[in-house]
């Protein structure tokens, strides 16, 4: 079952990448990043059956970082929305000057 789990992880990561590249809503892009993190977690869990429980420990750390990233990222999105009343990435081009 491990090769199937790795293949599923690759498919989910690809779907997350497609979402990041095609969506315009900043919040949906954040959720696509979460999907990619989940795909990597699946790889860790699948390989922890072969190489010991350290993979599961790493999944705990990945989830912690994901939670921190969600909190800070959503705060940034709220700040951007207050500034420009939009979260559409087409309209957020302040760095162009």
């Amino acid at each position: 079952m491990i090769p199937e789990a790795l293949a599923l992880s690759a498919v989910l990561f690809t779907i997350g990448t497609i979402g990041v590249l095609t969506r315009r809503n900043a919040i949906v892009i954040f959720m696509c990043v979460e999907l990619m993190l989940n795909a990597v977690n699946l790889t860790f869990v699948a390989l922890s059956k072969l190489y010991g429980v350290t993979g599961q420990v790493f999944v705990v750390f990945v989830m912690t970082v994901a939670a921190a990233e969600a909190a800070v990222g959503l705060a940034i999105i709220i700040a951007i929305f207050r500034h420009g009343q939009t979260v559409n990435l087409k309209n957020i081009n302040l760095l162009k000057g």
Binding site: M1, A5, I27, F30, M31, E34, N38, N41, V45, A46, S48, K49, Q56, V59, V60, M63, A66, A67, A70, A71, L74
Partner: peptide, 23 residues
């Protein structure tokens, strides 16, 4: 199913229960 019971539990609690609620 891959014998990672604790990871499965915190997947539901932390990811589905906390992070997605924040989103």
């Amino acid at each position: 199913m891959m014998d990672a019971h604790f990871v499965g539990a915190i997947q539901v609690l932390v990811y589905a229960g906390a992070i997605m609620v924040v989103f």
